[in-house]
Nucleic acid binder design. Structure first.
Lengths: 203, 203
DNA sequence: GTCTATATTGTGATAGAC
DNA sequence: GTCTATCACAATATAGAC
């Protein structure tokens, strides 16, 4: 395997990622990916047998972005509020770097939900340590009683939704000003954990 | 225009809605829509000139579901906490009845964001009365200081995200048990406004 | 208005020269 | 490994009979 090979394969993956993530499996065109990579269609099939295989490579990679290595942290014995802050910051940072990933994942999973089975297996997601911790804090009266499932969904909602709804929010809420929306996203790193902790802490 | 005509057109619209909303513009097939409506492809083009025109009709209709007539309410002089409860309940109810609409809108808008411009014009969305009310309540010290833009996005996030992410949540958080997820969605009618109000009320 | 048949175009995939 | 040319088929759209 020569250097040239590697570099072509990388170019394909990079181009495919750009196109697939913006347009989805069905919206993407092999021609478009080839153009973006500066090669022709035939080479795509030389490196990856089919559109499906190429898509699979991109999709798997994107999944890894949505399931970062914070599971260890969630299992740890850090204080609840610290975990909430680390969790939200981690996701908001990851999506700020890859803003199209959330919408991509959402759409493709609703197209073919069976993919989640593999995702869950490979990622080793386990929300129960966190759920148990929330239950313990509720029972010992350290926080306002809260259903841990709703808490988790609320956390994920506030981290992910703004990236899925970016075009709506820019137009409706920010007068089509993309810059002030960027600023807004940066603020969420602080605002979201602050909001969540306010909702459950006793004062 | 005979009764038969109307009924065929309605059948087409109903079928198209089913297919488009589940599969999106690019995933949907005219053949599939024709089958669902119990007619053939040619009739689709007789009633709606092209796939694009048919899609446009469905999309516009779906938008109206995501922008219900609660704008009047938001402009009213109801107490802030009452508005928050009405707002969240209204959205959660609308999406419970049309669970595929949020994902559909999100995906299509990221495919062609320019559609939002028309949407906003026609719907007359204006968040400023609500924003001003939040500012007033903050300044008079009635609530914990909160940025109104983040508050609105948080509200929308918690109402909409669970419907966009349904397949993920069922598999990862609810052990593939769709029934307990349904139960969970019903609970959110109470949990979401409760959570939001807790986050901003002084105690 | 509704159908069958067909035209037309787009797109994933392959063959084969270099 | 990379290209050009082409195939095979799927999907939108139209023509024309009834």
């Amino acid at each position: 395997m020569s250097n040239k090979e590697i570099s072509t394969e990388q170019a394909i993956l990079k181009a495919a990622k750009n196109i697939f993530i913006r347009k989805g499996m069905e919206g993407a065109r092999m021609q478009e990916i080839a153009d973006e990579a500066g090669i022709n269609k035939a080479l795509l099939h030389y490196y990856f047998r089919s559109k499906d295989k190429l898509f699979e490579a991109i999709f798997t990679d994107a999944i890894l972005k949505i399931v970062p290595n914070i599971m260890e942290m969630m299992k740890s014995d850090l204080p609840l509020f610290t975990k909430i802050e680390l969790f939200t910051n981690n996701y908001i940072d990851a999506f700020t770097e890859n803003p199209f990933v959330p919408g991509f994942i959402m759409h493709e999973l609703s197209r073919d939900p069976s993919k989640i089975v593999n995702m869950v297996k490979n990622a080793g997601i386990n929300p129960h340590p966190f759920i148990d911790q929330v239950k313990r804090e509720t029972e010992s009266g350290n926080i306002i009683p809260v259903d841990p499932y709703h808490l988790i969904v609320n956390m994920l909602s506030m981290c992910i939704f703004p990236f899925v709804a970016t075009p709506i929010l820019i137009n409706v809420l920010f007068n089509k000003n993309a810059d002030s929306y960027k600023e807004f996203i940066l603020q969420r790193r602080k605002e979201v954990p602050h909001f969540i902790i306010n909702a459950i802490k006793k004062k």
